[in-house]
Computed example of a mutant assay.
Amino acid sequence: MTPYGNIAFFVIIGLLLLPTILLGLRGKSSKRYNLFISVIVLALIFGHSLNGTISLVLFTVFQVVLIVAYQRYRLQQNSGTIFIIAVLLSILPLILVKVLPILGLPHVFGFLGVSYITFKAVQMILETRDGLMKEKISVVELVYFLLFFPTVSSGPIDRWRRFTKDFHTVPSSEDYQKLLLSGINYIFVGFLYKFILAYLIYNYTLIYLPNHTYNYLTPFQGQLAYMYMYSFYLFFDFAGYSAFAVGVSRIMGIQTPINFNRPFASRNIKDFWNRWHMSLSFWFRDYVYMRFVLWMTKKKWLKNKFAISYIGFFLLFFLMGIWHGLEWHFVVYGLYHALLIISFDKFERWNKKHKRWPKNKWTHAIGVIITFHAVCFGFYIFSGTLF
C-alpha cells in the first residue's frame, strides 16, 4: 500500500490513531501504542513484496548496527579514517540503488524510502562524530526514528535530537489539542494540494503538454505552458505528501518540521532554497556544504573564501541533483541551481558595494517574478523534457 496514495490508507490510519487521540486528549502517553501501530502500518506499506520486506529488514539492521557500533567506538576514540569508513558504509546501499540499475544489475536495497532513511542514519553518524550524541541510544527508539512511518516514504527529514525530545515529551491535554488541530489542518491542506489541485493540473493540462498541445498553442507556447504547469504540479503533489506526513506526525505527538513555506513567493534563489523541500536542503547545507567549507578552510588549500564557497555550492547541488537520479537532466538541474546561487551571491556582493538595487516593495516584487521564472525553468530541466 502506497502511503497517502488513496482514501483506504487514510481510513486505516484514522482508525489506528483513534486510541492515540483519546490518550493524547487525556494527557496520557501513547508512545507504546504508537510503536505498536507503526509495525502494523509498515507491514501494510512494505508487506506486499517479500523482497521489499527483506530489503527493509536487512537495511535497517545494517544501519542500526553501524550507528550503535560507531557510537560505542566514538566514546573511546576519534579516528578520522574510521569516521569516513562509517559514513561510506552508511551511504553504500543508497549508492548501489542508484548505480546498479544503470549497469543492468539487481540490487537488494531497492525499497520505498531508502533515501530518507539513509539521510537519517548518516546524520546520526555525523553528529556522533561531532560529540552531540553522547547518551546511550535505545535500539527501539533508533528503529522508530529511522522507520517513523508518517515520513518513511518521502520525508520530511527529521533530526534525531529534535525527534527524541518529542518522543519523550508527554504533552498536556491542552497542548495535545493544539497538536491535534494542527495535524488535522495539515491533512486537509494535503488533500487540497494532492487530490484536488495536483490532480486537476495533471489531468486537465499536463497530460496534453508539451507533445500534444492545444490547437491554439504553438510548439514553443506548448513547451512554455508545460514548464509552468509542471512546476505547479510538482509543488502541489510533493507539498501535499509532506503536509500529510506532518499532519499524521503531529497527531502522534511528533512535530515533524515542515517542508515547504510558500516557495513561489521567494524574493531570490537563496530565499527559495530556504522555502523549498526545506528538510532536504537544510540537510545538505548542514552536512555537506558547511562541512566542506570548514574542511577546505582548515586545510588552507585555497585562500579565497568565495572560491571555497562556490566550489561548495557546486558540490552541494551536484549531489542534490544525482540524488534524484543519475540521468543527465538531474545532473544539469543541480548544476543549474549552483550557477543561480553563485550568480546571485556575486550580484549581492556587487550591489552591497555599488548600491544600485534598493530594497523596496517594487524591487521585492521584481525579485519574486525573476526568481519564479528561474525556478520554473529549473523544474523544466528537472522534468527531462528539455533533453
Rank of each mutant, 00 (worst) to 15 (best):
Y310R: 10
L126N: 08
F36V: 14
K361S: 14
M296A: 15
N215I: 13
N268G: 00
I369M: 13
L23D: 08
H329S: 13
R129A: 00
T213L: 09
V143F: 03
L217E: 11
Y202N: 14
L335I: 15
I322C: 12
R162D: 02
I269W: 04
V65G: 08
M133Y: 07
S154M: 13
T118E: 08
L339C: 15
A307H: 01
R250Q: 12
W328C: 09
I201M: 11
T118W: 03
R250T: 07
G183Q: 07
S38Y: 06
F232V: 03
F9I: 11
Q221Y: 13
W160V: 05
F10V: 12
D286L: 06
F9R: 00
D271W: 00
Y199R: 00
A69L: 05
T20K: 09
L179Y: 15
F195Y: 00
F109K: 02
F220K: 12
K165R: 01
P3D: 01
Q71C: 12
F191N: 02
G312N: 02
G378I: 14
Y193W: 12
S30D: 11
W357P: 00
W301P: 02
I13V: 15
S383P: 14
F235S: 01
M133F: 11
S30A: 15
V114N: 09
S172D: 07
I37M: 13
A121Q: 05
L319K: 07
W350T: 02
D175L: 13
L35E: 13
F264Y: 15
H107F: 15
G384C: 12
S242W: 11
T2D: 01
S182C: 10
N51T: 15
F284Y: 02
G5E: 04
A69Q: 01
G367H: 03
Y204V: 07
I21W: 11
R72G: 07
F282C: 05
F119K: 10
V288R: 00
L180M: 09
G110K: 06
P19F: 14
I85N: 03
Y310E: 04
K305A: 00
F111K: 07
I137Q: 07
V87K: 02
L234P: 08
A121R: 03
A43W: 10
V114D: 00
I54Q: 08
F272L: 10
V122T: 08
L206G: 06
L224V: 13
F236W: 06
Y310N: 10
R159Y: 01
C376F: 14
Y228E: 00
S30L: 10
K299D: 04
F306G: 06
Y144P: 06
L339D: 04
L339K: 05
F272H: 01
P101L: 12
L100V: 06
I54A: 06
S38G: 04
G334K: 08
N211W: 14
N34E: 12
T128C: 03
V375W: 10
